[in-house]
Simulated assay, not measured.
Amino acid sequence: MTTDTTLQKSAPAPSITQAAAGALIAAVHSAAARIGFTAAVAVTDPGGHLRAFDRADAAPFLTAEVALDKAWTAASFRTTTHTWNDYLTDPRIAPLAGHPRLMAVGGGYPIIDDGRCVGGLGISGGSYEQDQQAAEEALTALGFELPAP
């Protein structure tokens, strides 16, 4: 039996550009300064691999690892990190809390462009509300879509 269709063995994977990742970091630092905190900012590709990173001089060293894990979590599950607090109350999902990279703290957002996740953004340095606010401001300023609540 022959068919006219050929098996497609791969699909193009959209990913945030280096220029957009750098612009996001700059936008986050601007928002954080306006809000009143210093931050570490991580941007990953959709697979959770680091694409760009910066930690402000005054940001504590632990913020570097936390920002990366927030970006990884957001990209991995295509959802904000603050939503994980509710998810982890479900005993069927709670075992994921033991995953060493899962970060259920506000400040991690999937980077969504034209309806597709192109990466993850993680911010650490302020309160979880400040991290979330800076993320939303930066994503909006650059024309990325915010995930549905």
Rank of each mutant, 00 (worst) to 15 (best):
P46V: 05
P91D: 08
P110E: 07
L62G: 12
G47L: 07
A40G: 07
D113G: 08
A56Y: 00
G119M: 06
Q130N: 04
K70C: 10
D4R: 15
A27C: 03
A31E: 00
D54G: 09
V28H: 05
I16R: 03
A21C: 07
W72Y: 14
A94P: 06
V41K: 03
A138R: 00
Y87H: 13
L146H: 06
G36K: 00
H49L: 12
I112Y: 01
P149Y: 10
A39P: 05
I123M: 04
L7H: 13
I25T: 03
A58S: 08
D4N: 14
P147I: 03
R78S: 15
T6S: 12
A39S: 09
A19G: 12
A39E: 05
L139P: 02
A138H: 00
Q8G: 13
M103S: 11
I111Q: 07
I111V: 14
T6W: 09
C117G: 14
G48C: 05
A97F: 03
L24P: 05
Q132F: 10
W72L: 12
A148E: 13
Y109C: 11
G120T: 04
F53E: 03
T80N: 13
A94M: 10
G108P: 13
Q133A: 13
A52S: 12
H99D: 14
E129R: 15
A97R: 07
A52Q: 08
P95V: 03
N85Q: 13
A64C: 04
A21S: 11
P60C: 06
N85T: 09
L139D: 03
L50A: 02
S124H: 09
Q132E: 15
S124M: 09
G36D: 01
A33N: 08
L96T: 14
A67E: 00
A97M: 05
E145I: 05
L7P: 10
R78D: 15
A71F: 11
G125D: 10
A67C: 01
L146P: 13
H29T: 13
Q130G: 04
A141L: 04
P100S: 11
M1H: 15
A23F: 05
E65N: 11
V41S: 03
A141Y: 02
E129K: 15
T5H: 14
A148P: 08
S127D: 01
A59R: 04
T6K: 15
I112W: 00
D114P: 00
R116F: 06
T83L: 14
G47N: 10
L121N: 08
T3A: 14
F37V: 02
Y87N: 13
R55T: 10
P12D: 09
F77E: 02
Y128C: 10
E65T: 15
W72P: 14
P95M: 06
T38F: 01
S127L: 00
H82P: 12
P91N: 06
A59Y: 07
A19D: 11
S76M: 13
P147E: 03
K70S: 09
T81V: 06
D90A: 08
P91A: 06
E145V: 06
P14Q: 10
T83D: 13
T2R: 15
F53Q: 04
A67P: 02
D131G: 01
V118S: 14
V28K: 03
A97Y: 02
Y128H: 12
R101V: 11
D57L: 09
